[in-house]
Design a protein around this nucleic acid. Structure first.
Length: 535
DNA sequence: CGTTCGGACTCAGAAAAATATTG
DNA sequence: ACAATATTTTTCTGAGTCCGAAC
């Protein structure tokens, strides 16, 4: 707020030619959030702009001088924002360091919780700052103002005898102090963008509570291994069931098993229109002949799922039957929802739900690929094998990332360097030829110290250059290969860390080559696994 | 009973920050 | 060595899953 008062006159000048317009700090702040996004694609998004305008107009009031967002020139505020960012960037590294240390010092007291007498790290200890809501995909609420959360919004959950945390805003108080030991959250507040849901402060991923729950997740997925044969036999039988609900359950389970689809809960119209298995619409699956089904839909986070797969004939015929007499927009599995599906899965294995198949599929695939593809070689080669296996998993789970803005320029840069090196190599080969005949090297050659070059030295140089070229070509290929694939999501959420730790032990690969510092902490529970561990 | 609702937790890619590489 | 740039790691918060209670 102090910062804002300094900005006030600036904002006033920016927002209107009429300097007398009185805008409150909050109205200005909301305008700044909008202006700061002037150079983003959100400015082409009519829903975003309309939602912003509607909320902003409410703040301005009905009879405000500003009657149309189009009359406002936001570019001066945008310029001011850019300038502030530049100033931050231009700080010396010493200044940045001092600022960082000051921040660390202030935050230290919020970072820890004593749980059952053990000091545990807290995950997100800050409430989310206000701003303009940015949903993913075509979100109907994008652009709406997300309001500031204060102590009065926050429920604290602590032990009965624990001291109540000091309220950071003088005069204000917490909404409620609760003593519920049946759940793990430390604080929560209502999500300002979704009336029905809450935001939570949980322990960090490295906490023992989360570690235990992680381990249980993987143990359940491992249990599926011994049930999967029967489950597959059961759904194969179900493909031709005359009971249409049973038939739909069978085909849906097949998709979840074979394609690692998510369960697919119902969504309301206040959210982006995405689907999972149970909510697939008839147009999301196309029968293409020769038992091939083409899947095309937007899944979680509006990530496109596109995959053409050959299925068993009874599945193919069942899909044709489910689509019969339906229109686009109709549910493919009209007799199903996630609770029916999961209730059925629980009959096949204790506590089995749809998501377990994803964990099972991912971890099983990693274990399988690692053990089939690892060969003798140095650490670097083995890490490549791991990354390759990790990539197969990411593809199965459809974990994508957007291509970085500088990707193509980085590729052409690399390719340019390879061309240069190849030219050097060509000259070296000529020089080698000449050196063997006792002639001096060519002047234009990239070789320095030409006076004392013998054939052996040139040969060595050729070998070095060739190796360099090969490495760069491999790097370029990998970069292109992984430009849309996100490897991290599966590593964090789907791959039993014991597979990786045991593989590292067996192959003398340092675990640090696979897990970052935070992942090592998160997976502390898996580090003492036996080298023979198999998923 | 289903069906809806909301609570609590897991999982998601983008963006920011930190770190490594390069020229 | 050092600043610019590329890469990796961490943070952020939105978007799912699944459960159980209430209607």
């Amino acid at each position: 707020m102090t910062m804002l008062s300094k900005q006030l006159p600036m904002y006033l000048r920016c927002l209107s030619r009429d300097h007398s317009i009185n805008l409150t700090h909050y109205i200005l702040q909301v305008a700044t959030w909008f202006a700061d996004m002037w150079d983003t694609e959100y400015m082409q998004n009519e829903i975003f702009k309309n939602n912003f305008w509607n909320d902003w107009q409410k703040l301005l009031g009905k009879n405000h001088v500003i009657q149309n967002v189009k009359d406002c020139d936001f570019t001066p505020i945008y310029d001011w924002c850019q300038n502030e960012k530049d100033k931050k960037k231009q700080m010396s590294s010493a200044e940045k360091k001092a600022l960082r240390e000051e921040k660390m010092k202030q935050e230290e007291k919020y970072k820890w919780a004593i749980v059952d007498g053990v000091k545990e790290k807290v995950g997100n200890f800050r409430v989310e700052p206000p701003g303009l809501f940015r949903g993913r995909g075509k979100h109907p609420k994008t652009g709406h103002v997300k309001k500031r959360i204060g102590p009065n919004d926050v429920i604290i959950n602590i032990g009965k005898d624990a001291p109540i945390p000091e309220c950071p805003i003088p005069g204000a108080s917490w909404k409620e102090i609760r003593h519920d030991n049946t759940c793990s959250w430390l604080a929560k507040w209502r999500d300002p963008t979704k009336a029905k849901s809450s935001k939570y402060v949980f322990l960090a991923a490295s906490s023992s509570w989360n570690g235990q729950s992680d381990k249980e997740k993987y143990e359940k997925a491992r249990m599926l291994k011994s049930y999967i044969g029967n489950i597959r036999a059961a759904y194969t039988k179900g493909f031709t069931s005359i009971d249409i609900t049973k038939q739909q359950i069978a085909v849906a389970t097949y998709f979840i098993d074979k394609l690692a689809l998510r369960a697919g809960n119902e969504k309301d119209d206040e959210e982006a229109d995405t689907v999972g298995c149970c909510t697939l619409k008839v147009e999301n699956v196309m029968a293409e002949g020769h038992n091939k089904l083409k899947f095309d839909f937007l899944g979680k986070d509006s990530i496109k799922y596109e995959n053409t797969v050959e299925v068993e004939l009874p599945v193919y015929n069942a899909i044709l039957k489910f689509q019969k007499d339906k229109c686009p927009g109709d549910a493919l599995f009209d007799k199903l929802d996630t609770s029916i599906l999961n209730a059925h899965l629980k009959e096949l294995m204790p506590n089995l739900t749809a998501k377990v198949f994803r964990t099972f599929n991912a971890s099983f695939t990693l274990d399988d690929k690692l053990n089939k593809e690892t060969k003798d070689g140095d650490v670097a080669e083995k890490v490549v094998v791991y990354q390759h296996a990790n990539k197969q998993v990411a593809i199965i789970c459809n974990h994508q990332r957007s291509v970085s803005k500088s990707h193509s320029s980085q590729i052409s840069k690399l390719s340019g360097k390879i061309d240069e090196l190849q030219a050097v190599l060509k000259e070296l080969k000529i020089d080698l030829d000449r050196a063997r005949k006792g002639k001096p090297p060519l002047k234009c050659s990239g070789v320095k110290n030409q006076s004392n070059l013998n054939p052996e030295a040139i040969e060595k140089k050729i070998a070095q250059t060739s190796a360099k070229i090969e490495k760069m070509q491999r790097d370029m290929h990998t970069k292109e290969d992984l430009k849309t694939v996100a490897l991290g999501t599966s590593k964090i959420n789907y791959l039993d860390p014991r597979i990786s730790v045991a593989w590292c032990k067996r192959n003398e690969v340092p675990i640090e080559k696979i897990f970052s510092k935070t992942l090592l902490e998160k997976f502390a529970w898996a580090m003492d696994v036996d080298p023979d561990f198999r998923f």
